[in-house]
């Protein structure tokens, strides 16, 4: 009996050693890819993909920083790419291994957050604005003020994401999204506390579904969420307020402790293959920086001002930058707003 059991054990251990399939650990935003493409990548390359999701840049950062888990590929936004690069948390990407990089529109190459694209390859881009239900809001939506209008008490959804919600308050006050002035930040914090009784909930991925179901009148969302919502419910519309907005870029990056850098680069290249890039842009509703993918999109979306705003809509748009020391104040103010 004992011999049999030990034989079984040995067999188990041996089989564990032999079948060492290469694995790629991917950490992406929730609802941010057509998950069918993962299976196709596995079939084509034989690399097994383990796919996890996060809700905000800050969640992702803390998880990578604490070092408990190793991922091979992550999807941080602009300011987070800068921050992680500065803290030595990112591996350089070898663009020679990513021939499909040539499809990326020049407008999105070499942005300030990563000037030579040494650490990131653009994935999607977009704006932040107000998604609203035209059957509940009977006035033009053109200002952040509407999110503070008592008329819509308990009809407003805010983002449970500190830079975005604090950002909306800063824009309403006419300040920069990247302010490091503590007075301005405190003012934004006070404004968010004042707004709290009017807010139905602080959510991230749930916002679009709530809006589609008519559970709220107004929501602070990213543009791709708006596209998805408007496709599902024709009563919804999206506005970029006149005070300005956040123009953002999400990239793909490889963390420093990645075990399968080669696989990660293969995966980046795979996602930039025109057919795959098209499917992800089509599924998520977010704007793609990929020239060929955009051409393939349904003209209704490819020409949509929501997904692909005109240059003049973006004159007031600001890109988030990494904040350095002031970040602690953002953290404190957001903790206080949520605790209030």
């Amino acid at each position: 009996m004992i011999i049999l059991m030990s034989l079984l054990l040995v067999a188990l251990i041996l089989s564990g050693c032999k079948k060492d399939t290469p694995t790629l650990y991917v950490y992406n935003w929730g609802d941010y890819i057509d998950e069918d493409v993962l299976g196709e990548f596995e079939k084509e390359t034989g690399i097994k993909v383990v796919y996890d999701t996060f809700a905000t840049n800050e969640d992702m950062y803390v998880k990578i920083k604490s070092g408990g888990s190793t991922y091979d590929l992550i999807f941080p936004s602009d300011y987070m790419i800068t921050r992680m690069r500065d803290e030595g948390m990112l591996e350089k990407i070898n663009l020679d291994n990513i021939p499909n990089f040539k499809y990326i529109d020049e407008r999105f190459v070499g942005q300030d957050y990563d000037p030579n694209n040494e650490y990131s390859v653009p994935y999607m881009w977009g704006t932040m604005g107000i998604l609203y239900n035209t059957t509940m809001v009977h006035e033009p939506v053109d200002s952040w003020d509407i999110l503070w209008d008592p008329k819509y008490s308990k009809e407003i959804l805010m983002l449970d994401s500190q830079r975005d919600s604090i950002g909306a308050a800063l824009l309403k006050l006419g300040y920069s999204l990247n302010t490091t002035d503590i007075q301005e930040l405190e003012e934004a914090g006070r404004l968010l506390k004042e707004q709290k009784p009017l807010v139905l909930a602080y959510v991230v991925d749930e916002a679009k579904d709530k809006m589609v179901a008519g559970e709220a009148a107004l929501a602070l969302v990213w543009s791709g969420e708006a596209i998805y919502g408007m496709q599902e419910n024709p009563d919804l519309d999206y506005a970029i307020p006149k005070e300005g907005t956040n123009l953002w870029f999400d990239g793909m990056a490889i963390p420093k402790n990645a075990k399968n850098k080669e696989g990660a680069e293969k995966f980046i290249d795979f996602l930039n293959r025109p057919d795959i890039a098209f499917r992800n842009a089509d599924y998520t509703g977010y704007a793609t920086p990929h020239k060929e993918a955009r051409k393939m999109l349904d003209p209704e979306i490819a020409q949509s001002k929501v997904a692909y705003p005109d240059e003049e809509d973006l004159v007031n748009a600001e890109v988030f930058v990494s904040l350095g020391k002031t970040l602690k104040d953002y953290d404190r103010i957001w903790t206080e707003v949520k605790a209030y």
Binding site: K63, K196, L200, Y202, D331, W334, K338, A339, Y340
Partner: peptide, 19 residues
């Protein structure tokens, strides 16, 4: 809906969001 921060949420936020 993130409106009612309880002590557990405060602890969670410190570890998972703010660090």
């Amino acid at each position: 809906g993130g409106q009612f921060t309880l002590i557990g949420n405060l602890i969670e936020q410190q570890f998972l969001v703010v660090g």
